[in-house]
């Protein structure tokens, strides 16, 4: 595992005070928070920040970390924990320890990341009858599954933070039926798929935040689906009945004569299902072919001679 320089992660000096560390964290957290950031690796960076702040904001953890850091370790250097660190926690070796932070964190502070259920119910075998904890995770669904519904294999591979900030256990694989019409950012519930209950109590539920995977053809906005449709100049000029892909299969559509790039046409009810279902919008994109032969060039020249057309007429140039 690699040594992590938490001061470097937060961009502060090792002598920085608590206020400075808090300010640095807040500034970077605003930049990389997955709900607001457009950076591609925002989620990973936000996690790194959270880990660094978790250590540096806590005087006890910070002192322990500083002691290790004084051994001359540098960012990214291969790290072996000193004897006695981490209270014997063995990480799963996948880069993320049980705490939801890195193996490096667990090697220093292992055992501090027990699930909230265990923290709330130490021992766990009493006579108390209690409902199991709800589990929170996120899931990526492809657009055809969101449209038609289908079976999805979920891998709850790593612990995630629940709404209260407590970590949820991972390491579970589950096949579930996804209903048709799920859209980006929605929460779905799988009843009874959370943590088992205590003393015969019912299991908790599994809540999943849905992320739709980008699709090579379609863009989605709510339940509406957008498709950019390339057409030839003569199809745009003369109009044509064309086959258009939709999530439910191809449909025929009339392109009116004189259509130009950017024209938006609607296929009612062809978006994601729901009450009411979304629509599919088709945005035309006129693609001009190269004049590859003498004949093609001469046809373009004939068209130029025939048409009294100046696309820059309004520019006074």
């Amino acid at each position: 595992m690699q040594f992590k320089d938490y001061y470097k992660t937060l961009g502060v000096e090792p002598k920085a005070g608590a206020d400075e560390i808090k300010r640095a964290y807040r500034k970077l957290a605003r930049k990389y928070h997955p709900d607001v950031s457009k950076e591609a690796d925002a989620e990973a960076k936000f996690k790194e920040l959270g880990e660094a702040y978790e250590v540096l904001k806590d005087p006890e953890k910070r002192a322990q970390y500083d002691q290790v850091r004084q051994g001359g370790w540098r960012q990214g250097e291969e790290f072996r924990p000193p004897p006695g660190a981490g209270q014997g926690w063995q990480s799963a070796g996948n880069g993320d320890g049980f705490s939801g932070f890195s193996d490096f964190f667990d090697s220093l502070f292992g055992g501090l990341g027990r699930s909230g259920f265990e923290r709330a119910h130490p021992g766990g075998q009493g006579r108390v009858r209690a409902r199991g904890r709800d589990v929170h995770a996120s899931v990526e669904i492809d657009l055809p599954t969101a449209f038609a519904g289908g079976v999805q294999r979920l891998s709850l591979g790593r612990p995630e933070q629940g709404p209260d900030g407590q970590l949820q256990p991972g390491g579970k694989t589950l096949k579930v039926r996804i209903p048709a019409g799920v859209t980006d950012g929605r929460q779905i519930r799988l009843s009874g798929q959370g943590e088992p209950g205590l003393g015969g109590g019912p299991a908790g539920d599994l809540f999943l935040e849905v992320r739709l995977k980008p699709h090579p053809l379609f863009d989605v906005q709510g339940r509406d689906v957008h498709l950019t449709l390339p057409i030839a100049p003569w199809e745009a000029a003369l109009g044509k009945r064309l086959a258009v892909p939709t999530l439910g299969g191809k449909v025929e559509m009339n392109i009116p004569p004189g259509a130009s790039s950017g024209k938006r046409m609607r296929l009612k009810g062809r978006g994601l299902p729901g009450k009411p279902p979304g629509d599919q919008y088709v945005i035309l994109k006129v693609v001009v072919p190269e004049a590859r032969t003498d004949k093609a060039r001469s046809l373009y020249e004939s068209l130029q001679a025939e048409q009294d057309f100046d696309p820059r007429a309004g520019m006074e140039v």
Partner: peptide
């Protein structure tokens, strides 16, 4: 056999999202 699989319900769509449900989901 996929009929026996657990079915996901969309909160606020297939499944009513009342005060209690939203509190539980969001830990409030």
């Amino acid at each position: 056999s996929s009929n026996k699989l657990p079915v996901a319900e969309i909160i606020g769509h297939d499944l009513d999202a009342d005060l209690e449900q939203v509190c539980r989901l969001c830990g409030l």
